[in-house]
Amino acid sequence: MAENEVVETEEIEEIPDIEANFDPTACDEICEQYKDWKGATIPVLQKTQDAYGYLFPALVERIAENMNMSPHTIYGVITFYAQFYTKPRGKYIIRVCRGTACHVQGSGRISEIVGEEFQIKDGETCKDLLFTLEEVSCIGACGLAPVIMINNKTYGNLKPEDARKIFKDYATNLPEA
C-alpha cells in the first residue's frame, strides 16, 4: 500500500522526530495492558496519545495491528472525538472556554486576541510548535467566566487585555510546560 502512495514532498515541512524515528515499544505495552478489556479502543487511543503526543499514521497502523482491527475503524473513532489529534500540537495548549457563561462575558474577544498574537485559529498550532488554540465548549468554571486554561493552569475573570499580557508573558518567558 505504501509503495503506491504519491507523496507531495513540498507540502511536508519537517517530519517531527517522534514520527520519523517511531519506536513502537510504548504503544505495544499499552495495547498489551488492555488486551482483555471490552471496548478498549478509546482508552488505548488516549494512553498512546499521551505517550506520543498525537496519533500519526504509523502509530495508528500499529495500534490497529495490535488490536486486530482495521485502521479505518480506528480512524473512524479518532475523527469522531474532539480530543484525538492527528497533527503535532504546541508546547502550550491555550484552551479558551466558549461556554455560555464565558460567551456572555465576552470570551469571543479572547480567542481573537490569541489569533492576533500568534496567527492561529481554533484547532491550529503555530509553526514553531509553541502554541495551540482550542476553543472548548465548557471548562465548567463558569463562576470565573471568562476563563482560559494554558495547559493545566486556569486563568479566570479575564479582561481581554489581561489575557494578551498572559500570552505575551508565555511567549517571552517560555515557562516549563
Binding site: R98, T100, C138, G140, A141, C142
Partner: peptide, 8 residues
C-alpha cells in the same frame, strides 16, 4: 458526561 455549556 456533563456537556451543556454553563453547567457544572
Amino acid at each position: 458526561d456533563e456537556g451543556d455549556p454553563g453547567a457544572f
